[in-house]
Design a protein around this nucleic acid. Structure first.
Lengths: 154, 154
DNA sequence: ATACTTGCAAATGATTTGCCAGTGT
DNA sequence: ACACTGGCAAATCATTTGCAAGTAT
């Protein structure tokens, strides 16, 4: 897009956007943070802290996990990152981008589907009516058996 | 009910029912198992392994947690017990009774609501139509903010 | 130069496992 | 008696924290 945008509230759409947010908060832009941010931008979905520490290719231990966790927490406080818990596995982190994202996971194949905005509004409304709870499947996704796995799929 | 029942498939409705299931499976009815089973029957909801080990009153360490976990697993294999994961906390175990139960949890006050059978059929149907996933909120409950907590309630 | 950051080790919390002594059948 | 169980300690996994050394500003 060639549209001139006047710095929309908080749109972390590129690595620099996030790094600038760090600077603006008086925090430092360290090598470790660059790596965490770039790794998240290079990912195609939520990543575990271990994956970030090891690098997407799983080869080199680019960072200590402890540092990864500390930085992910810092980035979450800035609103640039969020995380979710899929089944039993470790927490998984994603760039917050322009907003929250809801997920649907398969408890057999582990597939994690990102739900389009609004697609769960009906579900949300029904649950709110019946129980009064306001639900959001952003931090704890809906867990079920996907169509493929349901039919014995492998 | 005073209805004469001809041993309905698997209805674990009393401590002895479960203990008999153990015997029938060639497993032993040990003191530890009696305690686990009785504690679960005495509970008003899903319990953590630690609570079972310590006793509902939290006083005496009646059993070693390791034994509790081992026995809970055994009981789950028998179909007498099942467990769920609420938010970040430890796993929580319940008697399976006559069937599965779905839950709804509040991420603020921690309240765990047992959903009446069928109450989530609409939700289930909608999710299945849209995504093809067959969902069941028995192992991973729906997480949200309950009505009371939503309005600043405390 | 100074405060923020990092790596490494040790601590936590939940759950599992090895091992040998104890016990249900 | 004998195999199944229990307690206790040690191991695992994910995550956090303490601390001294390193670095961004």
């Amino acid at each position: 897009m060639t549209v001139s945008h006047s710095t929309p509230a908080l749109e972390f759409d590129a690595p620099e956007t996030v790094l600038n947010a760090l600077r603006s908060s008086g925090l430092r832009v360290s090598t470790a943070r660059r790596i965490v941010v770039h790794t998240l931008f290079a990912a195609r979905g939520p990543l575990g802290a271990e994956e970030i520490a090891t690098g997407l290719d799983g080869r080199r231990p680019q960072l200590d996990v402890a540092s990864v966790y500390r930085n992910l927490e810092t980035l979450e406080r800035l609103g640039a990152v969020r995380h979710l818990h899929v089944g039993h596995g470790p927490g998984r982190y994603v760039l917050a981008g322009s907003g929250e994202r809801e997920y649907l996971a398969c408890d057999r194949c582990g597939e994690l589907v990102e739900v389009d905005p609004g697609e769960l509004d009906g579900v949300r409304a029904e649950i709110r009516e019946r129980f009064g709870h306001e639900v959001r499947f952003t931090h704890f996704p809906i867990v079920g058996r996907c169509a493929n796995c349901r039919q014995g799929g492998g």
